[in-house]
Design a protein around this nucleic acid. Structure first.
Lengths: 260, 260
DNA sequence: GACCTGAAGAATGTCGACAATATAACGATT
DNA sequence: AATCGTTATATTGTCGACATTCTTCAGGTC
């Protein structure tokens, strides 16, 4: 036993040589198509419940049906598309009955993320959180400018994703990516359109502060409360005094990085 | 605005009619192949680092390369396969540098799960946890019988998966499924073979007890400690007084349920 | 002897075509 | 008027074939 199983591992001359450069990895066509599909869903080009005709989309992307179908299966695995046999692909509809479950999953991932970030040593923490801090500034700017609800929504989701990304855990980052897009899908599935609370700045300022202060449990608690309020709002249990109807801005994108 | 987006939703005669029966959903070929591939990886038929030749596997499954490639992309999305352009598919190798990240992700999901279960009302809790309790019994039996390390490992992973499944959160269940298979991959990637601690029964008994007692934080803490010990062991930082080398039992399976 | 260069082989990436299936429209019936 | 059955259309599911790319191995060179 104990034969070599790592035939794909980089050749090593010595016993343990750290690779000098990062391995170059040309993205496959399937990768590129999957990114396009995700962005189309995230940006609202492909609306929830709409059918995705393979021939049509494939020709728009300049590829054949084969690679498109392979990419589509990735999104099926992510829960962004559904494939009924014989009836083809549809963008999923995230209904009210899914909202609670969705945010519970997000809390599991993002709560763990902020707890980890807060638990780091101050010097390492600042290095990890700096990118997220800029995303917070973007959210602040978007809220100050005011009118574009879509931009605010993007900034919000970008920040939440950035906090998970800051942990450096690629598995959790991938899961967060999926859940973030599903959150956008939930908003787009809502017939009343997208609404954003204008008081989200305070919540996220508190969150960032608690992370900086090393208060992990507090940060998770803040996140939990924020999510609870959001779920309640989406389920229509609460009246919302301050809300803005989502615009239809173009060019809304979100960076999807996958596992190594 | 407010045009009908839910053209795939069941027709409703009245304003709100609850569906009388569950919608029948015939599994697609891609579904079936994906299950076969996952089981092959989980059971060790496809070893970490081994290449998956499409024509060979496709003929073994009795399908063409097309559907196989589509299914493979699902496992790529799950992080169970990697696809290098031109070089095809390989089963991923979960090295020592991935173990910490993997168990951190598992703690995020499973920790949230046990916390939720413990937080339920006693009556609802018992109903949800009953299946997991049987899985605990299976683990107990496997440990009493003793020799088959593979059976013990299966029972362990089944229990951990069952606890997430008990929450009823299909998103978290799907993530747990992926992480569980990756855990198995980590074990199979280890050149020294699979080793199981024989004291895991105490930990899990404590865990189940704390869930039953409604002690969510305690249950999560138990899980965290258990995972920490496991990571330390896998990274070789600890000497293991009680361990058993994994056998090569056949027929090890694991139920993979995907999103609706 | 080790390294680089080049060619042969094998597997993948992509595409087009055909068969199978679901959907939609239409007419007949109770 | 609503429902059922039938037919036609369009789309998907699957397969085989070809071009492309990577890997491997032999030969040559320093």
């Amino acid at each position: 036993m104990n034969e070599t199983r790592d035939r794909d591992a980089p050749r090593r001359n010595g016993p343990v040589t750290r690779p000098l450069v990062n391995m170059v990895r040309r993205p496959s066509t399937v990768d590129l198509i999957a990114v396009e599909l995700r962005n189309a869903i995230y940006s609202g080009t492909l609306l929830p419940g709409s059918s995705v005709r393979e021939a049509e989309v494939a020709s728009q992307l300049g590829v054949s049906r084969g690679p498109l179908r392979e990419s589509a299966q990735r999104l099926v695995q992510e829960g962004l598309l559904v494939a009924r046999p014989g009836a083809g692909l549809r963008v999923v509809t995230v209904g009210a009955d899914q909202v609670e479950e969705l945010y519970e999953a997000r809390l599991a991932i993002e709560g763990t993320a902020v707890r980890k970030l807060a638990g780091l040593e101050p010097t390492a923490r600042e290095r990890h959180v700096s990118a997220a801090r800029e995303l917070f500034s973007s959210l602040q700017s978007a809220l100050e400018d005011g009118t574009d609800a879509r931009r605010i929504g993007d900034a919000d989701l970008d920040l939440h994703f950035g906090l998970v990304e800051a942990t450096g855990n690629l598995r959790m980052t991938g899961m967060a990516s999926t859940l973030i897009v599903q959150t956008r899908l939930a908003a787009l599935s809502h017939r009343d359109g997208y609404v954003v609370r204008t008081d989200i700045l305070d919540v996220h300022r508190t969150l960032m502060r608690q992370i900086s202060d090393g208060d992990g449990p507090g940060a998770e608690q803040t996140l939990a409360g924020h999510f609870q309020q959001t779920v309640d709002r989406l389920l229509g249990r609460l009246e919302e005094p301050f809300s803005t109807v989502m615009g239809t801005a173009e060019g809304s994108h979100f960076s999807f990085n996958r596992l190594p």
